[in-house]
Design a protein around this nucleic acid. Structure first.
Lengths: 234, 234
DNA sequence: ACCTCTCTTTGCGCCACCGCAAGGACAGCC
DNA sequence: GGCTGTCCTTGCGGTGGCGCAAAGAGAGGT
């Protein structure tokens, strides 16, 4: 296995205060893997033997209920660590990360985690913060699902997506990876039908512009207003 | 401030592999605080200056939406750490822990967290695991809210409660702290009315026995069946 | 160019659940 | 004992959004 070039990861904030030599030592133990669109990096329930860093592309982490219903737990963006179940003392992976677009991931064996954090304590802190944020996000989502109607939840989800994966375009901001209505439904706890209806309604008001696996937000402010609950009346 | 007696915490798994001397040093920096029923340990949004351990009693951690709606994020049981926002690199508390029953908490200033972890690396691992579990729970809850109807969610919530706070009684298992229907509603993302109706229905089937701020589960198996979705036909 | 597959749109009926509202019950307090 | 505040119950009507079903529209392959 050829070594991974340092330049690929040098810019990541995760490694910001790490020496080149240390970084190289870390990368020496890593392998790189291409994940074609639609394929899974690993499967929910599998024994956790590695942890990962997404270099390029986009992953949707799904969980399946015993009945076979699927939900999207989160979206992994470039630069994010994922699958570090071991750090949380689990020995199996809790979800399945599927490539929404052709992706590139770096894989480390679990044993490296120790030296990973030792060599740069900042990394441990970073990982902690990441998990904290993720917990925070989860609670936000729970709160939204408990108290808000579907339209607001979907609006929030879309806003979050353009924040994390938005790409400026002449007449708005585009979500930068293939995203189906079904995906949005699984992120917000609703159905594909309802999402489709909502997008249609929004499109007729000029707020968004849809397309097959595409979404362009033309008027983020009005979308924000919907998310804030200013949809019908005060 | 008088020192806290070591015997109060010695039995906690959290401190299982820690020397008495180390433990004493830790406790020397702590203060103890009684929280009367209905009072908050701290308020959501406050600057986080301390972290806590619940010794005795029961706390409901609530979050309030900008619109004033309330949800219960989780229940803190004796022996649980809580309010360690600092460890997650937040500088304010994300929720408000309210005493559901007269409670006793130990408080440490944030600066201790470092030595807290240093003196017993096992603690760091433990904390990590705790957060991981909490994240896991949050995802479970999201999954339930996305895919399951209200009855199943409430059944699950009740089962979780008797697991964490169940007390055997002659004819069943009682939830060991005052819990209103409103509380259950805020834990499951429904309304007090619906919970009340559900409990009534269950009671008429002999599954539970209700009371003011009380709940006794008489037939956990049938409740589990409901939670598994065997409520209305396979 | 055509075919096929996946994704999307939209209409329609239905039902679980919510919200309102009024009444009842239990516990603590003076 | 009566009073007050909190919590619980239950009926009723309205509706958001789900599920079914069927047709339309891109995208990619041969």
């Amino acid at each position: 296995m050829a070594d991974i070039d340092r330049s690929l990861v040098r810019a990541l904030p995760l490694f910001a205060n790490m020496q080149d030599a240390e970084l190289d030592r870390l990368l020496a133990r890593a392998t790189m893997r291409r994940v074609p669109m639609g394929e899974a990096v690993y499967e929910q329930g599998q024994k956790a033997t590695q942890f990962f860093l997404l270099l390029h592309g986009r992953l949707k982490v799904t969980q399946v209920t015993p009945e076979g219903q699927q939900i999207i737990v989160r979206v992994v963006h470039p630069g994010d660590l994922f699958g570090f179940a071991q750090a949380l003392q689990r020995n199996d992976y809790p979800g399945t990360p599927i490539a929404a677009a052709e992706s590139l991931v770096i894989c480390w064996p679990n044993e490296v985690w120790g030296s990973f954090v030792e060599q740069n304590p900042h990394l441990a802190v970073n990982a902690m913060r990441t998990i904290g944020q993720r917990l925070q996000e989860a609670h936000t989502r729970i709160r939204e699902m408990s108290t808000q109607e579907v339209e607001r939840r979907v609006a929030h989800a879309v806003l979050r997506l353009i924040e994390q994966a938005g790409k400026r375009e002449p007449d708005g901001v585009r979500i930068d990876f293939p995203l189906t209505r079904q995906d949005v439904a699984e992120m917000t706890g609703t159905t594909l039908h309802t999402v489709s209806r909502l997008f249609s309604a929004w499109e007729s008001q000029g707020i968004v512009k849809g397309g097959r696996q595409k979404l362009l937000v033309r008027d983020a402010e009005r979308l924000q207003a919907l998310a804030d609950g200013l949809g019908h009346g005060p």
